[in-house]
Design a protein around this nucleic acid. Structure first.
Length: 321
DNA sequence: GCGTCCAGGTCTACC
DNA sequence: GGTAGACCTGGACGC
């Protein structure tokens, strides 16, 4: 395992566009991690690991020093060597971008005036912002391991991949494990990936994806500059990446329905279980686009992090999936 | 303890 | 262009 001993640190802080709830944004209610499953969140402070698009790895210690209506985020970044000016600039810009600090969501909140579901979720999770992972390969690992597996098994595959082939960052008296690089997976055989990480047929996909990325693939910023449909098609050129996985990985806010979330949105739209969740996905996507337009990705995010309270509000069993 | 089923998609062959 | 069937594996379940 590659170990990064990070003894150099640099501090910066920045304001975010209100309303902005730092805790809800970096430590979301459903428990999904911001950057790595092994990050630590304690008493309002997050210790995590970031790989910026140019490839450098940083340890991050972040906390809020403001309020939801006057938000300010403090960030202490650790590295293995003193940073050049351009490296510091990339780090600063990437962190702000990752946390959607400059994103204006007024139009999303305005939907609450005429949409009771949006009203409920924005009341419950006021100030929560979407986040973006600048490391495309880690998102591709997530997407591939989520395919055709119960969540317990997906977590098992991800943890094995990180523990066997990932990287370790040591900083601020913490040790945080991080996703493997595309280079490491490209240099590992399919048989070894299958054996060590219980990936099954997904090992072939992951190896092929890693090799494609090594040979040259758009960065997350380049994907973001493309029209959403073009970025999605580019991602779908990768072996094992279909429509659902591309929606998860794309930096454009998507409506990535799988059979689990399709069941939830069918319950929300129609109050009943779908007979075949997979078959209703295209129909549900059309309804969401017509109802919420460009903000459907935000609705998706808020709903999936608000299932407990929504279930009570609407008297629906949304959390049994 | 053992056998069976199937999961938070995607690819391929075939029509 | 649409649609079955196959795909790794291990946890859940029934017996």
């Amino acid at each position: 395992m590659i170990v990064h001993d990070m003894t150099f640190s640099t501090h910066f802080d920045f304001v975010a566009v209100p309303p902005y709830n730092f805790k809800l944004t970096v430590h979301k209610p459903a428990g999904w991690s911001l950057l790595t499953p092994f990050e630590v969140f304690e008493r309002g402070t997050l210790w995590t690991v970031l790989r910026v698009p140019s490839g450098m790895v940083f340890g991050l210690k972040m906390k809020s020093e403001g309020t939801v209506d006057a938000p300010r985020v403090s960030c202490l970044a650790y590295s293995g060597h003193r940073l050049a000016t351009n490296q510091r600039t990339e780090l600063y810009e990437t962190v702000k971008w990752m946390l959607s600090a400059d994103e204006k969501v007024n139009d999303f909140y305005a939907l609450a005036n005429n949409d009771s579901l949006v009203r409920a979720i924005t009341e419950d999770l006021y100030g929560m912002r979407r986040t973006k992972q600048p490391d495309v390969f880690s998102m591709l690992i997530l997407a591939v391991t989520l395919q055709m597996a119960p969540i317990v098994r997906s977590n098992q595959m991800m943890e094995l991949l990180i523990k066997q082939y990932g990287e370790k960052a040591r900083f601020d008296r913490k040790e945080i494990l991080y996703w493997p690089s595309a280079q490491t997976i490209a240099e590992t055989s399919v048989a070894e990936l299958k054996r060590n990480c219980k990936l099954g047929y997904r090992a072939t996909f992951l190896k092929a994806i890693a090799e494609t990325i090594q040979n040259g693939f758009p960065s997350v910023h380049e994907l973001e500059k493309m029209p959403p449909a073009e970025a999605k098609l580019k991602l779908m050129e990768l072996k094992g990446i279909g429509e659902y996985s591309a929606d998860i990985v794309s930096p454009h806010s998507g409506f990535a329905l799988d059979v689990w979330s399709a069941r939830i949105f069918h319950m929300l739209f129609f109050g009943s279980e779908p007979k075949s969740p997979r078959d209703v996905i295209p129909k549900l996507k059309k309804i969401a686009e017509a109802r919420w337009g460009e903000w459907r990705g935000y609705v998706f995010l808020y709903v999936l992090h608000d299932l407990d309270r929504l279930s009570k509000r609407l008297s629906l069993k949304l959390t049994d999936a």
